[in-house]
Amino acid sequence: MIPITDDELMTYLDGEMTAEDVERLEDALVHDAEARARLATFRSIRRAAAQAFAPAELSAGLAAFAESLDADSPLPDQPGARLRAAPKSRPLGAPREWLAAAAAAAITFGTMIALSPDPAGPAPGSLLATAGDRIVAVAILEHALQSQAAGDRHTSEVRIVTSFIASNGDPCRQFGLLGDQRAGGLACFSNGTWQVEVLASLAPEGAFLPAGLGQDPIAAAAVRLGVRREIGPDEEADLIRREWRAAPAPD
């Protein structure tokens, strides 16, 4: 009996064998339990890969881009014409829609970071400090929350994902930490500081987590805070200008 190779089994699973070779291989497999076991292993791995990478729900930005593709406007006729601004400036609509997007965006976050407030103040390089019973953002995290536009992720180690008004009226922002910190969370502006409502670590590098294997802490925090509405780019720019203070009441 000629041994059945792994490459033959993979070619068979990939549907790339000729009909003649398929018949020959299947005849041989009937008499080769060891090869059938290898085939079962390869089939399981292949199926697991397909399941792990099942097409995901699109992020809000890409969903908006898909809508723009469906629109009955002409194709851009200039090479390099950019459509990216349109999806980013598109209002996301109902808070529920935003929450779904936030949950999808935040699904990469895994276990909660244990926050250990240091009464002596933040250590050098720390992004958090205690203020009474609250945990507030400091250093580059505070700076980004205060002054960085959502979606602008090439200007610092912090990426602001989105901004919204919570049910109590406070402006809140979802952020991600790039580089070594590999974490993200939600912070809300209250009493002149950015109070961190939740902070979650990213899964370790190389650890790929399928969805549904744990509740996403950032989405859960957004639900707890309540999302009254998303803050659009214009309002966000205005709030950054006013250092996140409420607009003066009209006369």
Binding site: A54, P55, A56, T108, F109, A207
Partner: peptide, 9 residues
């Protein structure tokens, strides 16, 4: 950085 992937079920 390498994210954990945003898989779906």
């Amino acid at each position: 950085g390498i994210d954990a992937l945003a898989f779906t079920a």
